[in-house]
Simulated assay, not measured.
Amino acid sequence: MSSSPASRLISSIISFLLLLTSPACLVRAIDGTSQQTGGNLAGGTCMFTNYTLPPGIYGSTMSGPDWNAGAMCGACLFVQGERGSVVAMVVDSCPSCPKSRVNLFSDAFPKVGDPSAGTIKIQWDIVACGITGPIVLRNKTGSSRYWFEMQVLNANQPITSLDVSTDGGKTWQATTRKDYNYFQKAGGGGGFGADAVTVRVTCQDGRRVVAPGVGVAGDTEWRTPVNC
C-alpha cells in the first residue's frame, strides 16, 4: 500500500530536520589540515589526567590560534577527510601548528585520510559530543577553602565560564580560565572560604548547569545533575 502525499511530506520534513541536527552537517565547514599524532591525553596541555575518552570519540590536537588559550579544551570536532569522518575531542594544543590545523590521534587519522600522505586536507566544525553522562568537576591538587582551582570535564559543549556561590546561588563570584585548563578564582587566585560551594558552568549555547554542594578539596571529583 503506497503512502499518502501528506505522510511522504512529513517523512521528508523529519529527514531534513535529522540532517540538520546530524554531526555530519558541517554548519561552518572550516577548511584545515591534519597530521597524525601519537596523542597525549593525560600529559597534554588540557591536563586531562585520569580521563578516559567516551566511546566513539577520538583525541585531537588543535593549533595554538584555534585552541584559544585553553578555551577549546574538551570541545568535540566533526572532522571530514577524503576517507571518511570522525568525532574528536580537543585534548592538547600545537603552538607551532598553522591556523585551522587539527592533528588526529593515530587511531583516528586512518579513518579520515591516508597516514602515508603526511599532511592532508580536512574540513571541521564544532559539534555536540553526544555524551550521555554528567559533567565532571575536578579539583586540582592543592585546592581547598583557601585556594580554588577546578577543571570541567565530559561536557557536551565547550564551557565558556564557571562561577561559584557560597550562599546557595543568591550571589555569584567569577573565575578565570587559565591556559592549563583550570578555572581559578578571579582577581589573582585564592579561595572562597568554604569547604563546599555551588558551581555554575555556562555552556557554549548559553545553557547553564548548576551543581550544589560541591566540595573543594584537592584531587576530588564531583558530578553535575545534567550535561549541556
Score class of each variant (00 low, 15 high):
residue 179 D to R: 13
residue 196 A to Y: 07
residue 186 A to H: 06
residue 170 K to F: 05
residue 132 T to I: 01
residue 133 G to K: 14
residue 189 G to Y: 05
residue 186 A to V: 01
residue 136 V to E: 13
residue 154 N to D: 09
residue 184 Q to V: 15
residue 135 I to D: 08
residue 116 S to A: 15
residue 118 G to E: 02
residue 115 P to W: 11
residue 172 W to Y: 03
residue 196 A to E: 12
residue 197 V to Y: 10
residue 122 I to D: 10
residue 161 S to M: 08
residue 129 C to P: 01
residue 160 T to K: 15
residue 138 R to E: 03
residue 182 Y to D: 12
residue 169 G to E: 08
residue 111 K to Q: 15
residue 128 A to I: 14
residue 194 A to C: 02
residue 143 S to L: 07
residue 171 T to V: 05
residue 155 A to H: 08
residue 160 T to P: 05
residue 189 G to P: 07
residue 174 A to T: 13
residue 175 T to V: 02
residue 176 T to G: 06
residue 169 G to L: 03
residue 136 V to M: 10
residue 119 T to K: 11
residue 169 G to W: 04
residue 152 V to L: 12
residue 175 T to R: 11
residue 124 W to D: 07
residue 157 Q to A: 11
residue 172 W to L: 01
residue 129 C to Y: 00
residue 133 G to Y: 12
residue 118 G to T: 02
residue 193 G to V: 06
residue 195 D to T: 06
residue 178 K to H: 10
residue 121 K to A: 15
residue 172 W to I: 02
residue 139 N to Y: 03
residue 151 Q to L: 01
residue 195 D to L: 07
residue 175 T to G: 06
residue 187 G to H: 05
residue 126 I to D: 00
residue 157 Q to D: 06
residue 190 G to K: 14
residue 120 I to P: 09
residue 123 Q to R: 14
residue 157 Q to V: 07
residue 114 D to K: 11
residue 161 S to G: 09
residue 134 P to H: 02
residue 167 D to M: 02
residue 124 W to Y: 15
residue 192 F to A: 03
residue 174 A to W: 01
residue 114 D to C: 05
residue 184 Q to H: 11
residue 136 V to G: 01
residue 146 Y to I: 02
residue 189 G to S: 02
residue 158 P to E: 14
residue 156 N to K: 02
residue 129 C to R: 04
residue 146 Y to F: 08
residue 185 K to Y: 05
residue 140 K to Q: 14
residue 189 G to A: 05
residue 125 D to T: 03
residue 143 S to M: 08
residue 184 Q to R: 15
residue 138 R to L: 08
residue 128 A to Q: 14
residue 189 G to M: 12
residue 132 T to V: 04
residue 176 T to M: 10
